[in-house]
Amino acid sequence: MRSVIDIMDLSLEEIDGLLNTAEDIIANPKKYADACRGKKLATLFFEPSTRTRLSFEAAMYELGGNVIGFSEASSSSSAKGESISDTARTISCYADIIAMRHPKEGAPYVASLKATVPVINAGDGGHNHPTQTLADLLTIKREKGRFDSLTIGLCGDLKFGRTVHSLISAMSRYSNVRFVMISPDELKIPDYVKQNVLIPKGIEYKEVKSLEEAMPELDILYMTRVQKERFFNEADYIRLKDTYILTPEKLSGAKDDLCIMHPLPRVNEISVAVDDDKRACYFKQVLNGKYMRMALILKLLEVEV
């Protein structure tokens, strides 16, 4: 049974296939409207994440399928102490595919070991969130038309931001990709990302502190949230927080075809004034997430359209 727990579970060819399916769905939505007729998706959300859950549910409905599930541990049997393995086996009797979100890292993997239907990791703590990365990849493909020869700026919390780590892994498989890591010292990219991905693959990267200085060379700017609780003291937070807020002024040196991304939800790291800029792609990214989830559900259910 094929599950997707980590973006690296998918080969480049498989990602290509998913991107092609997603673009075909966008071009011919009617063709897919009954593709999953009679199939059920179970959304098992052991912690609330309304936007991810709704994206999966909308994806399944647009494929003509149905959705069952729960959100938050309190309303499910896990509050009564049922193991992930038992939950996975039980739900496998009701549903054809499972999307699972869990606050503990590795929980969807544990579920995939015992489930008899495919499991999609919809986020496990600070660990993996492969469908977010798929959304990011479709956005890059649609906006830039390529994955190679890109300079990607990653800005904000690069230490705890799992979406950033997955994106680095995924993009590192393409040629001539450069990264510019823009963050305060406190939130720099962890060493293991450098040692496991960037250094062995010989990928060019640099670490800088100024968003404005990095701006002119960027093809993509991936913004993340800088959370107050990540700082050791309030003074540092106040000193740094505005540095990593994207405003129209900071975009003055940017390329005309820059693609601005953000995994959302944002708090204030992108000023609302940027939303009307044609380079702002973060709401398209949300929509792309739904299309990629549709493509992934089709692939894992082995539905031919």
């Binding site: 193991s83 992930i84 503990k104």
Partner: peptide, 13 residues
């Protein structure tokens, strides 16, 4: 040793 690991809550794993 990761306090956020699933093994911390699923004793039989």
């Amino acid at each position: 040793k990761n306090p956020r690991c699933i093994t911390t809550v699923e004793q039989e794993l």
